[in-house]
Design a protein around this nucleic acid. Structure first.
Length: 500
RNA sequence: GACCCACUAGCUCAGUCGGUAGAGCACCUGACUUUUAAUCAGGGUGUCGAUGGUUCGAGUCCAUCGUGGGUCACCA
């Protein structure tokens, strides 16, 4: 005879693992259960949020309301008590009296802890000190909080804990909540603006057989059933342009891309990008669209196009300044690159300015390095840099007058690239040639060079209309709009090393 | 990847010259029916990030490691 053996599950923490406060909270939880009250309750129908009550006090005074939220403060006064509870909208004070709630219900407060989530029913009133409050008639435990919350006055400051346990950050640091609400509004505003212009939002693959559309190292994964290598996308560009070939004239995708690169205050391995493509437009049209989009989002979210970032005033009002890369290098580096024809001349100028370059860099690559070194940091006010070398722009259309540069722009704010766009290269012969150059660079060790994408060339051979395209780094945009120093402050769960 | 900084109670932080581990909030006990950083009386709850080393003695000095942050490199 065999008996089914239940595996012994060690789900509860041992007494040694619990500190005093956690132990006491668990005891209170057990005490509630012993009285037949579920410490982790069920559905609670609310009638109002905290801000509804404080905002419409005159209309609601004396009326019965139901609200729910987390207990943030508690002040006991014997047979009466005050608490603040916080919901999505904010906080409101609750006044509890033994004679109004009944001795039994009031006694439940003995088992209450800061952080517990309660449902409260009561009447709206104003205290003698003038605070709009709810006079509780009943109380329900919706979730017991078994761990002590961070301190009410100083909040949670430890950066590691704030990122690893973002929920705590959100509970105790109201400005963090604001930042992420603003992020959500920014993304919504962008969608609304684009939808109004006839752009269609699409979803293209995040797992690519060939990682294209940008110069970056990809994350590599594996499909078991097909036994094939896949790359997490570094950009949706080549798929979105296939849709332009297919007749979608205005498309956009606003979602995550993944780049296997370093982490910094400006870089997270996964970040959010808006990419859009507009058929029959060129980079000039897209520049106008870019400044209009960003200015309108700021207006929508902040009510102004003049923002303050890290103590600097930044005016996002269109039109933004436009400067060619060569002009920028002349203005900020004092060197005239317009007449440079040979690699030797370019290297000499770079050496003179102590700007580094690699053997693979041509005249255009060196110009770009110099630009980044001498000019970028000066571009505080919104500026479009245009006329990027063809060498560093393998997907952009050549300029009609000068085939060595492209009809491309990058938008800089506070010295940081915030957008990148160009007239798309729709000539399949030229595109194949550019890919071949990339492939040879890749073979000589540049693992950020493009891979050959024959299928994309085939798509172009069917004919892609002249098209303007744009990419906007949404995290960086949100950083500006929320005056956030680090990209981690606008990403809910930034990348962290696995602990333990 | 290099360099610099941080890591002490649940949280925010002190900790002198190497000599028994501290404060505020939170928590516990008691009082209190309009408080709001409630107040009053009492109570320190700790693997000082980890491991070695020096020393009679290490939170403190040294080394290595871990995690996080910053600067640089990298990332057009």
């Amino acid at each position: 005879m065999t008996t089914k053996q239940e595996p012994e599950i060690q789900s509860e923490l041992t007494a040694e693992e619990l500190n005093e406060q956690m132990r006491i909270r668990r005891e209170k939880m057990s005490a509630l259960a012993a009285e037949g009250i579920e410490p982790f309750g069920r559905k609670y129908q609310i009638t109002h949020h905290a801000a509804d009550i404080t905002g419409r006090f005159e209309a609601l005074e004396g009326q019965t309301v139901r609200l729910a939220g987390r207990v943030m403060t508690f002040r006991g006064h014997g047979k009466a008590a005050f608490a603040h509870i916080m919901d999505m909208s904010g906080q409101i004070q609750i006044y509890l009296r033994q004679d109004e709630m009944g001795t039994n219900t009031y006694a439940l407060l003995d088992h209450l802890d800061l952080g517990d989530i309660l449902g409260i029913e009561g009447k709206v009133f104003r205290t003698q000190k003038g605070e709009i409050s709810v006079r509780a008639t009943s109380l329900e435990f919706l979730a017991k909080c078994l761990r002590p919350l961070p301190e009410k006055w100083h909040g949670l400051k430890d950066i590691e804990t704030r990122y690893r346990q973002r929920y705590l950050d959100l509970v105790v640091n109201p400005e963090v909540r604001q930042t992420f609400l603003l992020r959500s509004k920014t993304i919504k505003a962008l969608r609304t603006l684009l939808d109004a212009k006839g752009f269609v939002e699409v979803e293209t693959p995040m797992m690519h057989p060939i990682a294209g559309g940008a110069a970056a190292r990809p994350f590599i994964t594996h499909h078991n059933a097909l036994d094939m290598k896949l790359y997490m996308r570094i950009a949706p560009e080549l798929y979105l342009k296939r849709l332009i070939v297919g007749g979608f004239e205005r498309v956009y995708e606003l979602n995550r891309v993944f780049r296997n690169e370093g982490i910094s205050i400006k870089h997270n391995p996964e970040f959010t990008m808006l990419e859009l493509y507009q058929a029959y437009a060129d980079y000039q049209d897209i520049m106008k669209l870019t400044e209009e989009l960003i200015a309108n989002v700021a207006l929508e979210i902040l009510g102004t196009t003049k923002i303050s970032y890290q103590g600097r005033e930044i005016d996002l009002t269109p039109p933004w300044n436009r400067l060619t890369m060569t002009e920028a290098v002349k203005q900020y580096g004092g060197v005239d690159f317009s007449q440079v024809k040979t690699i030797e001349e370019a290297r000499a100028i770079a050496d003179n300015l102590q700007v580094k370059y690699e053997p693979k860099d041509g005249v255009g690559g060196i110009l770009n390095n110099i630009f980044e070194e001498v000019a970028e940091k000066h571009l505080i006010q919104p500026t479009f840099i245009i006329g990027h070398p063809t060498e560093i722009s393998p997907l952009a259309k050549r300029n009609k007058e000068n085939p060595d540069i492209t009809d491309r722009f990058e938008a800089f704010v506070f010295g940081r690239e915030i957008a990148n766009g160009f007239s798309e290269l729709n000539d399949p012969i030229d595109q194949k040639g550019r890919f071949l150059i990339q492939v040879s660079q890749r073979e000589s060790g540049d693992d950020e060079a493009h891979m050959m994408d024959e299928d994309y060339i085939t798509a172009l051979e069917f004919g892609m209309p002249p098209t303007g395209g744009l990419g906007i780094g949404i995290d960086r945009l949100v950083m500006f709009l929320t005056d956030s120093y680090s990209i981690r402050d606008v990403i809910l769960f930034p990348h962290m090393r696995h602990k333990e």
